[in-house]
Each structure stands twice: as C-alpha cells, then as structure tokens.
C-alpha cells in the first residue's frame, strides 16, 4: 500500500472527513463499551440523550462548549501560523486571574462598562503570557512547544500561591479560592434558570469574526502566508516577526478570554479546578476542526456533548465516564487519518 498525493481535495470529501472520523471513533469505542458488559446501543442512546435530550442537557452541553470554542480558536489561530501554542491552559488561568482581580470590587463601575473591561483584562493577561515564549521563539529560536507547555505549570503554581495568599477569600472557610467577582462583573444568563451564559454568544461571534478576518482582511492574508511559508512571506516583504507576535497576542488573548468568561459567566470566583483541561482540549478541538474557525464551533460542541453525555450515561450504567476521554482521543486519531486521506489517495502496490 502506498500514499499518493491528490491533485485536489473535493469539498465533499473535506466535509465528510470529520463526520466519517467521528463515526469510526464511535464504532471503535463500542468495543470498549461492550467490554464493560453494557448494551452498546442503549449506552450510546443514553449518551446522546444526556447531551442533547432535554433543555437542561442541551444548555449544559452549550455551557461546556463555550470555553472549548475559545481555547479551540486560540489554538487554531496559533497553529495556522505554525506557532505551536500548547499553553492555552496556563493562558486561560492567567485570564481568570485578571478577571477576579479587575472584577473583584477594585473598580466600582456599571455592568456595561465593567464587563468589557474585565474580559479585556483577561485577554490582555492571556496574550502577554504567550508573548514571552513567542518573543523567545522569533528572537532566539527557543522551541515554543517546550516553553508554552512548561509555562502552564508555572502559571498553576502562581495561581495556587495567590489563592493561598493575597487573593484568598476571607469568607471562603479556608478553601483556596478567591473572593467572587462583584455582581456588575457577572455575565448575563442566556437562558433563565440554567447555567448558560453570554460567553457562548461572545465565543460564537468571535468564531465568525476570525473566519472573516482570515478570508477577507490583509491580517488574515498575512497570517496564512506566514503560516504556510514564512520564507516566501519574508521575501515578499511581509513583517514576519510582527505577524508572529500579534498572532501570539491574539491566541493567548482568546485563551485568556476563556478563563475570564468562565469566572464571570459560570463560577464567579477562581479556584485551581476552574478548568478540567480546557486548554489541552482546545488542541483537540482545533485539530478536529482542521484549524478552521467555524469548524472549531462544531468540534467544540461535539466534544462538549461527549463529555456531558458520558457523565449522564455513567450515572445510569456501569460504564465509567472516562469513556468520554477515550472517545475524544479516538476521534482525534481518526480525524488525523481522515485528514491524511483528504490529501492523499491510498493505492495498492
């Protein structure tokens, strides 16, 4: 068997690839479900019902998808410019940190002013966090995979220190958590009596904006050129260093916004378990979406649905909810193969 490059990859194939990959992943995971002794079809039925089957399930899935869309966009934006940002998790926490500091009562402003300010602070904090590794990369060629990954742990320890020290909530019964943001900094709910908040609208709006930027503006044009061939971009006179740094600011900013939105829309305060790895899942989301901003929305919804649905399923059946992790990981692997098959053709001999 050999791989031969395709001259063109038809649109139908590109759309079918992720769908096929997800179906293949579900089929593969069916074996694991069967292994636990549970009936496969009923298990998947419960999973789907748990993710989409009721008002509550649906809003929970959307709530869960919100930070995933933002971290997914963060990763997609960076990866498209070949800036390998593995640090969305740390940038998310930095954004959350900025949100509790700025929104914690230090400024007494009306909501229409305070909310944008808090979110912008979160973006700035996330962006600056990625700026460091990006500067090291363009200036000295330091591998950003290593620096951004390791910075995650530095950020977590910093947050931990602050939560045990200066930021510790005096009313928090001794738990390592910050004081909550004030009411004027809270994001409005999208659906009454659910946890779904305006962060979703912001995330969707940004996905569309980024797609427009990518295809319609000279910024997107430059980003794509630098991502696809930095040497040719530099030869044509594009400011490659500035493009890399501004991509870093945008990517880190999106991850920081995810953290700020989680704090202001959902949790209200900062703890060390604010994110169950949204930053890392963002990488999976972006890869599943083949780095397309609109694809990120679909991929984030899928992953959120799998996690929320698996939780519901595991409460009703003897299938542990870890199956969600396996399903997401399998989907990613299938997607990588599917992506390969859209670009290459499998041939005998």
């Amino acid at each position: 068997m050999r791989l031969e490059p395709r001259a063109d990859s038809p649109l139908a194939l590109q759309v079918f690839a992720p769908v096929g990959a997800v179906v293949a992943a579900l089929a593969l995971c069916a074996a694991l479900v069967a292994w636990t002794g549970a009936p496969v079809l009923r298990a998947y039925g419960l999973l789907i019902e748990g993710a989409l089957g009721s008002r509550f399930a649906l809003t929970e899935t959307l709530t869960r998808a919100t930070p995933l869309i933002l971290t997914g966009l963060a990763v997609a934006v960076a990866f498209r410019a070949k800036l390998w940002n593995i640090g969305a998790e740390g940038q998310l926490y930095m954004g959350a940190l900025a949100a509790v500091v700025v929104g914690g009562g230090m400024l007494d402003l009306p909501a229409w002013l305070l909310i944008p300010l808090v979110l912008l602070a979160g973006m700035a904090a996330g962006g600056v966090t990625l700026l460091g590794p990006a500067v090291l990369k363009v200036r000295f060629g330091v591998d950003e995979v290593v620096t951004t990954l390791l910075l995650n742990f530095v950020v977590l320890l910093l947050v931990s220190m602050l939560l045990e020290g200066p930021l510790k909530d005096p009313m928090g019964m001794g738990w390592p958590q910050s004081a909550p943001v004030i009411a004027a900094a809270e994001l409005p709910k999208l659906v009454a009596r659910t946890r779904l908040h305006a962060g979703l609208a912001i995330a969707l709006g940004l996905a569309v904006l980024l797609w427009l930027m990518d295809t319609r503006t000279i910024w997107g044009y430059e980003n794509r050129a630098v991502g696809a061939n930095p040497r040719a971009a530099a030869f044509a006179g594009m400011p490659v260093t500035w493009i890399m740094l501004r991509t870093a600011l945008l990517s880190g900013g999106l991850a920081g916004l995810a953290g700020a939105a989680e704090v202001c829309g959902l949790k209200g305060y900062l703890t060390l378990d604010l994110s169950p790895g949204f930053g890392y899942s963002g990488i999976v989301v972006a890869m599943l979406a083949q780095l397309h901003p609109l694809g990120v929305v679909g991929a984030a919804l899928f992953i959120a649905a799998v996690f929320v649905g698996a939780d519901a399923m595991s409460r009703a059946m003897p299938v542990p909810n870890y199956i969600a992790d396996v399903m997401v990981a399998t989907s990613l692997l299938c997607m990588l193969v599917a992506g390969l098959l859209t670009r290459y053709r499998l041939r005998r001999g």
Partner: peptide, 9 residues
C-alpha cells in the same frame, strides 16, 4: 518553491 511562492495559497 521555498522563497518565491506560497504553494498552499
């Protein structure tokens, strides 16, 4: 190939 053009564009 590598300096003149962006092949993917």
């Amino acid at each position: 190939h590598s300096a003149g053009l962006v092949g993917a564009m």
